[in-house]
């Protein structure tokens, strides 16, 4: 299994191969998102004449929206089409020729991106806390550690969900729009666009039975120190169950669809 290490190292090299892209992703996107969220929520808080909304103060809301773009990236790892695009253009052939499991290879490359974005999150989270004067207390670092752990678990689960859907490309050539739609659902019901605390209670009760809140909202709340121990334990349990369901689905999809693969693109 030594090749795992080299796949990860190569994937990191690929990420770092483009300097400008690296810096734009690292700083540019976060700064823009924070400025927009800060301005938007400041005006919402002012318009409501309140300092706390659904348990969130303005600095907390700002931190939430600092974490959100990186949370989305950690969870979604590689871009939409990381498998379907390769099936479509035939570059998928290489995984069938090399004496390794393509599942393992793709999960590894996917998670390498997630780890890379996690490092970004750690740096930005620490810088934010230093700037606002919270410092880096032990409690804060423990929350961050558990948050990152849940983020990576969520990334594994989403990777298997994405793989199940992307494998549909063995039947239908293009699954791009389907993936974008699923992504929208996950972001919306996961709390990327609006914290789930702003959703009605009946919606939150229903969402608990889906994987969505555990993919984004739970790790963000854990990182911010808002999640209770019960919430974390049940959330992780739910992620585990969904992980098994999506893994089995992906395996079944591959078993059923691999006969249809025709290696177009050679």
């Amino acid at each position: 299994m030594n090749w795992w290490r080299f796949v990860v190292a190569n994937e990191f090299r690929k990420i770092l191969a483009f300097r400008s892209d690296f810096w734009v992703t690292f700083i540019g996107q976060t700064v823009v998102m924070v400025l927009i969220a800060r301005a938007l929520w400041q005006s919402i808080f002012e318009a409501n004449g309140t300092e706390v909304m659904e348990g969130f103060t303005l600095p907390m809301m700002t931190l939430y929206y600092i974490i959100v773009p990186l949370a989305n990236k950690i969870m979604t790892g590689e871009n939409v089409g990381f498998l379907s695009r390769e099936i479509y253009d035939g570059s998928f052939n290489r995984y069938l020729i090399y004496p390794i499991s393509f599942f393992q290879y793709k999960i590894l490359t996917y998670l390498t991106h997630s780890v890379f974005f996690s490092v970004q999150l750690i740096l930005i989270f620490c810088v934010f806390n230093l700037i606002v004067g919270h410092g880096l207390s032990v409690e804060l670092l423990i929350n961050l550690f558990f948050g990152i752990f849940i983020f990576l678990c969520a990334a594994c689960v989403y990777c298997m969900l994405a793989m199940s859907v992307e494998l549909i490309s063995l039947w239908a050539d293009n699954v791009w729009s389907l993936m974008v739609m699923i992504r929208f659902f996950v972001f919306f019901f996961g709390g990327s666009y609006l914290p789930l605390d702003f959703f009605p209670s009946w919606a939150n009760a229903l969402l608990k039975f889906t994987p969505f809140p555990h993919l984004i909202s739970l790790p963000i709340r854990t990182t911010m120190g808002l999640a209770t121990t019960t919430e974390i334990v049940t959330g992780l349990g739910s992620l585990f169950v969904w992980g098994i369901i999506f893994t089995m689905t992906a395996k079944k999809m591959w078993a059923a669809g691999e006969h249809r693969y025709n290696g177009v693109g050679i």
Binding site: R5, F6, N10, R13, K14, A17, G90, I100, I266
Partner: peptide, 23 residues
Amino acid sequence: MGQKAQVWWDLPAMDSFILLKEI
């Protein structure tokens, strides 16, 4: 495949070779 690259496009060849060595 003459029309399809198998080595990793964005990496120096040697990086691909080292990965293939492990694979």
